[in-house]
Amino acid sequence: MTSASGESAATGQPAATDQPTASDQWRLYEVFVRARRGLSHHHVGSVHAPDAQMALRNARDLYTRREEGVSIWVAAAADITASSPQEKDSFFDPAGDKVYRHPTFYDLPDGVQM
């Protein structure tokens, strides 16, 4: 980790240690909010919580203070499988040369309504 040691002679406060504190063991949950009916859930951020139920409550307090949502999902970040940025090019390559999947690929006679 890149942090300093946490020692501080100037303040006389206890120095930070490597000992985990109670919330250190809390899992990270990613939060998804449905803004209103008819829309899908969108990723809005993350929260820490000791379990999923409390993650939901924390997410409610943190991400819907202004009626931003009608439904929340939380998913443990550790359970999410992500593509790797290193494979970015090879992973997405197969779609790269298939421009015929877009309507703009096709030539149409002038004046036709479609």
């Binding site: 980790m1 890149t2 942090s3 300093a4 040691s5 946490g6 020692e7 501080s8 100037a10 303040t11 406060q13 206890p14 120095a15 930070a16 240690t17 985990p20 504190t21 919330s23 250190d24 990270l28 951020g45 993350s46 929260v47 820490h48 943190l62």
Partner: peptide, 24 residues
């Protein structure tokens, strides 16, 4: 929100709070 952004860089919220509390 900001501690969450910080965590993406490899510093946990608890670590950051400890460093705040220590005056570092």
């Amino acid at each position: 929100y900001l501690y969450s952004a910080l965590e993406t860089l490899g510093m946990s919220r608890d670590q950051a709070m400890d460093l705040l509390h220590a005056g570092t």
